[in-house]
Each structure stands twice: as structure tokens, then as C-alpha cells.
Amino acid sequence: MKTLIIYTHPNHESLSYAFLQKVIQGSRENPNLTDIKVLDLYEEEFNPVLVFNKDKRRRDMHTDPQLAKYREQIIWADKIVFVYPIWWGRPPAMLLGYIDQLFASGFAYQDKGGIMPEGLLKGRSVVCISTMMGPPLYPLFWLNNAHKVLMRRALFRYVGIKKVKFFEFGNMESPKGKHDEKLNKVYRYFKIIDR
């Protein structure tokens, strides 16, 4: 199973980076994960800003040569892992800019004239690992699960990805946040996952 890990945090001394390291460690120890690629959006200096004008049209995003290598990474992957913090109830703008540009019509989905488009990324699975300052149940009770609805329903199901797993960790800025326990949970998951 080929795994693409997309890391979105500007600080390599962050807790998000520690989660990235646990994903990599567990994946490397798992014989089912044959190949692993890491895309660090900040280190890559990915430009999240959408630009549309007379020379660059939205309907042509799926063939934009500047995004070709990122499209190839997604096509290559069987499993896509996203590691990011939750800021203001949603993923960072950097990750949303990546999603806006990569999950484009003609590449990630195709309008067939029906109620829903045809998802073109079928057969893949996704894992989202996110951290937040607030309590673990804050997104569920205060935000009506907006983060998971955004990622699972509005994005992944739309493009044909049905298998989505979430690790949504709260209280991560608290000394009582059980960081080691949560880091090891992610490590163990990737060490044994088989699909």
C-alpha cells in the first residue's frame, strides 16, 4: 500500500510534527505499507492562493502544469494521510488552499449532469490526524462537527473516497493533554493497519 502523508504546520517543533514522526515511524514498521512519501506544504512553500483571470481559468486547474507533481502524488497513493492542527474550527488555510487547487473538476470529480458528480479518486482511503487547543468534544457540541462534516462529506465523499478515519485530539496545549498516550495511539495504528 502506497501512502502519501501531507503535513501542514509551519513549525517542526510542534506537536503536529511529533504526530507526523509517529505516522512515519509506525508506517515504516508496517510491512503492508510498501512505499511512503511525505509532502510538507510549508517546507515545499506551496502557494495556497487561488488565481483566476483571463489567462488562468478555474476550469483548467486539472491541467495546470504547476500542480502536475501534486496530482501525480495523489494518483500514486492508495492511502492519503493528513496531519494538521485545527485553527478556528477548521484546517489551516495552507491545507485548504491545497485542497481548493488539487481536488479540482476533471481530476478529483467529474460532473455528469446528475445530482452528484462522479468521484474520480475512488479506491483510496484517508486518515486525518488533527490537534486542537479546545476540549475533545468542543467540535461536536459547539460546532456541530463542522470539521468532520467538511472533510468527510463535503470533500472526500464528493471525490469518491469513502473510507475516512479521524484522530481528532483536544486539550493539546494543556500539560494534562496526555500527549504521549495520543502519540502512541497514532503510532500503533500505522504499525498494524492493513488497508
Rank of each mutant, 00 (worst) to 15 (best):
K122V: 11
K122N: 14
K122D: 09
K122H: 13
G123R: 09
G123A: 11
G123Q: 04
G123K: 06
R124W: 14
R124E: 05
R124Y: 09
R124P: 02
R124L: 09
S125M: 11
S125Y: 10
S125C: 09
S125W: 04
S125V: 11
S125H: 15
V126H: 14
V126R: 14
V126L: 15
V126N: 11
V126C: 14
V127A: 00
V127Y: 06
V127G: 02
V127N: 06
V127F: 09
C128D: 08
C128H: 12
C128V: 02
C128N: 13
C128Q: 05
I129C: 03
I129R: 03
I129K: 05
I129P: 01
I129F: 13
S130Y: 12
S130I: 14
S130A: 15
S130W: 13
S130T: 10
T131D: 07
T131S: 13
T131P: 10
T131R: 04
M132Y: 08
M132P: 01
M132G: 00
M133P: 00
M133E: 15
M133W: 04
M133I: 13
M133N: 13
M133A: 15
G134A: 08
G134M: 13
G134Q: 01
G134D: 08
P135L: 14
P135W: 12
P135D: 12
P135I: 08
P135Q: 10
P135M: 04
P136E: 12
L137G: 01
Y138G: 01
Y138M: 06
Y138K: 06
Y138C: 08
Y138I: 09
Y138V: 06
P139E: 08
P139N: 12
P139F: 05
L140R: 09
L140I: 14
L140C: 04
F141I: 05
F141K: 10
F141S: 01
F141C: 08
W142T: 04
L143A: 02
L143R: 12
N144I: 01
N144H: 10
N144T: 01
N144P: 00
N144K: 07
N145C: 00
N145I: 01
N145M: 04
N145R: 02
N145H: 01
N145G: 11
N145P: 02
A146E: 12
A146H: 07
A146N: 10
H147F: 15
H147Q: 15
H147T: 13
K148Y: 03
K148R: 14
V149R: 12
V149E: 13
V149L: 07
V149A: 02
L150H: 12
L150E: 07
L150S: 10
M151F: 14
M151K: 05
M151E: 07
M151P: 14
M151W: 15
M151V: 11
R152H: 08
R152E: 09
R152P: 02
R153D: 14
R153Y: 11
R153S: 12
A154G: 01
A154I: 03
A154M: 13
A154L: 13
A154K: 06
A154H: 02
L155H: 03
L155I: 11
L155P: 08
L155Y: 07
L155G: 00
L155T: 04
F156M: 10
F156H: 05
F156E: 00
F156P: 00
F156I: 06
R157V: 03
R157W: 15
R157A: 05
R157Y: 13
Y158Q: 00
Y158V: 11
Y158T: 11
Y158D: 07
Y158A: 03
V159R: 05
V159I: 15
